[in-house]
Write a protein that binds this DNA or RNA. Structure first.
Lengths: 339, 339
DNA sequence: ATAATATTTGTAAGCGCTTTCAAATAAGGA
DNA sequence: TCCTTATTTGAAAGCGCTTACAAATATTAT
């Protein structure tokens, strides 16, 4: 099966130079006379030589690989994040090792350690750094610890630390704005639905609460609901809500569709009787009818920003890279609101 | 940043044994007396030693890593495949390097080579081995070539070759059955929608055509449509169909939802006036209203089957592993049909 | 108790590459 | 032309690990 693989010695011999010279031309660097470079390159091309990554790694202690940890990938938000991240990384010549850790802390911790032991050049953690009560909790200690070995980049999470870099959305503003818009259209009983206590969920809630406050609308705890991330469950949970409501803001599109299903079952007109706003603007948002107004978090921008800074950190050894970058969201208006 | 890393020599010294012994206990294998094993383990635990993968790789020429190549990951089918694959692989102690190659042949080829140069232990290709005219074409030559270096596993594609292993659905039967069911309910003008010429698309079409033939219904070419994989495009394309129709079978759920949107726009009753069947049974199938009847391809089973055989091949060096395994599909009935 | 055998441990030779340092060659100045 | 300096090359020492083989120790049979 394995076909004999040719190594640097073979090339050296064929090109009649030393292995050091071959190594130099392979790595582009250093001073090699144009003549010998051509000669060596010719041989390399001819036999199709690629250096052994292990040996290379042993020497350089890098494999041009970054580890990506997501809680799950069977979720449109996560999968598109992974897609953009790996695409951009590849454009810089880096591969990525993917790891789905689940949502639990110890899973994440384990996966971080596994990736570190693989000698990745950096780590990217996507989403869901639980923030507990809203404070900066020590659940993120393992991230800071990992950052002692390798720079860590957090997508849509907030972690402070020396070699930790975050890229986040301005979720507070996005939800504040859309809530305000609903209020200004005369809706006063706005449900806020979220499925987690993640950093971004907390920001979204803050935007919601702030908007109510600024418009002198009392906050009703019954309208701030915690749901599981499944459409039918959301639908049923809404059906049990005692207090009437005329709008729903959801922390992702799946939950929003659950709200739509609730309206459908109840026979409510959308958006007239119930306005619904989703989040992430993923493909599910246009699968339903009417199509979902959703807040687009520009995940593509977030990922590109993240990778750009990652490369800057690990390659150029730059030191003045921003530790936190905020990407704006954009409201995409469709049929579930009257905007 | 990088903290000093301790190596096998340190452990050997601390445990007062040779590095060979340390290596033995790390690799679990071989004969090491229980006493020394405990002693060494204690030291390892205490200082938290993990072997350097590069050095390990240099010796063993494996890194316990498999490469996964998907055309894209921002697609629910692909992302769940990746999810299940990597989950199962990890349970065997393997990591995976993910690579999104795009749908083009040369992209795939490039990505295969990149992964091979990373010394993966095996390669998994998901979906879309284009089959051209339905024959076994040489677009798959690069796969056979890759299989000379490392065993290759194809999920939902059909490639023959020495070290190539395939796991596929019985799509012919699934579509045959559902088409027959529609016909037996009196529907005669059934549209078949597909977005590709992939191996599985061809099987699906075959099932469709066979069912028509067996029920003496003439095949109408206008009803076999090739569409792009975007809901609105599908909707508009259906609107342009000159021939009337009363059922749609789509090669994935996204396309099926496009058909639903067509019905909605036209004011057609679903399922009474138009029945719709999707494929893959992904979350989008329950986002729409009525919810989509869809053929579940049991991607989880496919992935597990694939990984089980992969491990059997690369670890146990077994030789009588099946080269092709067929996983049955299951029709999940919801509101878009009258089954 | 001693020889013969089985078990455990250690020594040392790679694995393929990078890189320092010295040697060889080319270029420049007198 | 010969000597000094810049440039290009090569020899060799690792990087941290695995593993064949030899040495040492423990076990069993006689």
């Amino acid at each position: 099966m394995k076909k004999d693989v040719i190594n640097i010695y073979d090339i050296a011999e064929m090109a009649k130079v030393s292995i050091a010279t071959v190594s130099r031309v392979v790595n582009g660097s250093d001073k090699v006379s144009e003549k010998t470079r051509k000669k060596v390159m010719a041989v390399i091309e001819e036999v199709g030589y690629t250096p052994n990554v292990f040996a290379q790694g042993l020497g350089l202690n890098t494999m041009h690989t970054v580890g990506i940890i997501v809680p799950t990938i069977s979720d449109l938000y996560m999968s598109s994040a992974v897609y953009y991240l790996q695409e951009k990384l590849r454009s810089y010549g880096y591969d990525c090792i993917l790891s789905c850790s689940g949502f639990e802390l110890d899973g994440k911790q384990r996966h971080v350690n596994m990736l570190l032991s693989k000698h990745v050049d950096a780590l990217i953690l996507v989403g869901s750094t639980y923030a507990g009560n809203g404070e900066h909790v020590k659940d993120t200690d393992y991230i800071r610890e990992a950052a002692q070995s390798v720079p860590v980049f957090v997508v849509n999470g907030n972690v402070q630390g020396d070699d930790v870099y975050c890229t986040v959305n301005d979720d507070v503003k996005a939800v504040y704005d859309v809530t305000s818009k609903l209020i200004e259209q005369g809706r006063e009983r706005i449900v806020f639905l979220t499925d987690s206590q993640s950093y971004s969920a907390i920001k979204k809630r803050k935007g919601y609460e702030q908007a109510l406050e600024d418009h002198d609308i009392p906050l009703r705890p019954e309208l701030e609901m915690h749901v599981v991330n499944r459409m039918h469950a959301v639908r049923d949970q809404l059906a049990e809500c005692k207090v009437p409501f005329d709008a729903v803001i959801a922390s992702n599109d799946e939950i929003a569709v659950g709200a739509l299903k609730y309206a459908f079952k109840k026979g409510l007109m959308v958006p007239e009787e119930l306005a619904v706003v989703g989040y992430n603007n993923c493909s599910i948002a246009i699968a339903c009818e009417p199509e979902l107004t959703s807040i687009d978090n520009h995940i593509e921008d977030i990922c590109y920003q993240t990778v750009d800074r990652l490369i800057a950190v690990i390659e150029k050894k730059e030191t003045n890279i921003e530790h936190k970058v905020v990407i704006p969201c954009e409201l995409v208006v469709r049929g579930t609101t009257e905007f």
